[in-house]
């Protein structure tokens, strides 16, 4: 059984450690906030200028002046702060953010990522993604293993315009958890009921399989 988007978020939430400042991208990454285990203190940063983001507001309490990078209305947690865009990217560029989680269209086996442009079709812009991937030390990509046409998104080399080079640490998909190493994608875990062979077939880039590959543990 391949994972749902919620389960991908749930698995990634296990990578979030006590005391982390975390930047969540739009899409699956946003869901990670829902699964951070109890007893762990983390602060979520949104690049439009807030640290200490809380859940969505109750109906009637929405504030047009308090949104996240996805332009959604949010609330703030005790200890939160607001700041301007230059300060926000100072946090990111200055490597003060411990973990960055973002979506991708393609990831290559050397850790390149493409997620901002499909020439001639979709040009929405990179937003803060290029700044994030160029500076962050710990970047996890959350995405489906293959695209809608069934083609692998874990490639030898990205075909789309790049967002950043040699920057991704780990990829969590609906099929597997892989780590980027000098030799390629190292398979760490497989989704419950998914075989190594199925992952192999869905991965165009070099997949390194060493010993028994455990199933992901998702509560």
């Amino acid at each position: 059984m391949s994972l749902t988007k919620e389960q991908i978020a749930q698995r990634i939430a296990m990578e979030v450690k006590d005391g982390f400042y975390v930047n969540l991208g739009i899409g699956i990454p946003t869901l990670v906030a829902n699964y951070v285990p109890d007893g762990i203190d983390v602060e979520f940063q949104s690049e439009n200028g807030v640290l200490g983001m809380g859940p969505f507001p109750y109906e009637g309490e929405e504030d047009a002046d308090v949104i996240n990078a996805g332009k959604q209305t949010i609330t703030t947690m005790p200890g939160a702060s607001f700041f301007d865009s230059a300060t926000s990217f100072g946090m990111i560029r200055g490597q003060h953010v411990d973990l960055t989680i973002l979506g991708a269209m393609e990831v290559s086996e050397n850790g390149d990522i493409a997620n901002w442009k499909i020439p001639g079709k979709m040009v929405k812009g990179m937003g803060g993604a290029m700044d994030l991937v160029a500076s962050a030390e710990n970047i996890i990509v959350a995405m489906m293993h293959t695209n809608r046409a069934g083609e692998s998104k874990l490639l030898k080399k990205c075909s789309l315009p790049l967002t950043g080079v040699n920057c991704i640490t780990k990829v969590v998909t609906n099929l597997a958890v892989v780590e980027i190493t000098d030799q390629g994608f190292k398979l760490l875990e497989r989704a419950p009921g998914v075989t190594v062979q199925e992952i192999q077939e869905a991965t165009e880039g070099t997949l390194i399989v060493q010993g028994d590959i455990p199933e992901m543990k998702i509560a």
Partner: peptide, 12 residues
């Protein structure tokens, strides 16, 4: 007007 682009809320 301070228009909200994505109104997201949670239930009480």
């Amino acid at each position: 007007e301070k228009r909200i682009e994505q109104r997201t809320v949670r239930s009480r």
